[in-house]
Design a binder for these strands. Structure first.
Lengths: 204, 204
DNA sequence: GTCTATATTACGATAGAC
DNA sequence: GTCTATCGTAATATAGAC
């Protein structure tokens, strides 16, 4: 919060950790690697964080709290639900494009089996995000199972990035598909009218 | 392939490895742990596999080759495209439900940044799978970008499982949502008519 | 083919000087 | 607050007996 030198080092450690943990996950990164990336010794890390786990969890919370909150503009009651959804999807995908570390950390966190860690993270960062998504979906399709719909929507946004390392060797893969505009358009189209798009939809 | 004792041990090592790697990933599992799970010493593992990486890759290929191929019945030209798709989705989701290790290994593999490993796996196991999915989608929506559509469809099937560890702490989560019948119905509904379902679709 | 024993390196973590 | 130095442990991997 404040700007004294301690907090600055603290923050630099977090930023370096995020890059490493995003690339290789908790078990794939050693404290020695983190120390080298920061430019200090291992002992210095242990002055700021009591152990590796606390460092990891703090780093994850740090980036999630910065990237996951959604724009208040997307949640205005007076905006058309579909336009609202479009804005939100575009905004979130832009975040995924801009911050690959955030995207990959999300992927690592989903694989975490530690119940305590999962619950902490869920309560603190995922629950509010998920609630907003659910709220949006409910405005559009109030009778459906909002939880399942929200999961599908998040999957549609996230999976293209989760799978990109593999997909780049598959036929039909093109980088332009992953731009915020194209991807948002694609998802909205699917959410509005399914595989066949809006062609089959009765105009609303 | 044959059934001599060597191959039996070979296979038992793979099966035990799969369980461990699925839970904790490559870096989260030690050769000691694998050896203990199999009931042999570490040295025995190195008789069968030249190093940890070869063990991991063989294990992953082994389970993927068993689980990923899709039923020939889903690909018959004479079956209604939507029915074909329904069968395929149901079949694949059933696999994900039945084999949590396969589901989690898939998640680990998507996180792998090693280009050589990714390419090998993609060529050998993902490409055929992806081609079949693309073929199905193309029968339904020939003009669309089949690659993107296929990614979305796979994401819709996979993400509910990828996220289940986190989602169980979120409001609206229920286990029945994850049964093959319910999930397949949900996805088909979304692919047919978007968020609002088939209500908006002109009857075909 | 599997064992015991071990080489070698890396890991997380801490004590104590400055 | 960061350093040097180090402890104890666990990692991957191999040599050689059986």
């Amino acid at each position: 919060m404040s700007d004294n030198p301690t907090d600055i080092t603290h923050e630099r450690i977090l930023n370096c950790s995020i890059v490493l943990f995003a690339r290789s996950g908790f078990h794939g990164v050693s404290m020695r690697q983190v120390a080298e990336a920061v430019g200090v010794t291992v002992a210095a890390l242990y002055y700021h964080f009591k152990d590796k786990e606390e460092l990891y969890l703090t780093a994850v919370k740090h980036i999630f709290n910065n990237r996951l909150p959604i724009s208040a503009a997307d949640l205005r009651e007076d905006i058309d639900p579909w336009q609202s959804l479009d804005q939100f999807i575009h905004h979130f995908i832009q975040t995924l494009v801009a911050d690959a570390d955030f995207q990959r950390l999300l992927q690592w966190v989903l694989l975490d089996t530690d119940t305590a860690r999962s619950q902490t993270l869920t309560d603190k960062v995922f629950a509010p995000f998920f609630a907003e998504v659910t709220w949006m979906i409910n405005r559009i399709a109030p009778v459906q199972d909002a939880h399942l719909q929200a999961v599908s929507m998040i999957g549609l946004m996230v999976f293209p990035f989760e799978s990109s390392h593999v997909r780049r060797f598959l036929p039909g893969y093109q980088l332009p598909q992953q731009t915020p505009d194209v991807l948002t358009q694609h998802i909205i189209n699917l959410l509005r009218g399914g595989l066949l798009g809006v062609a089959n939809e009765s105009k609303s």
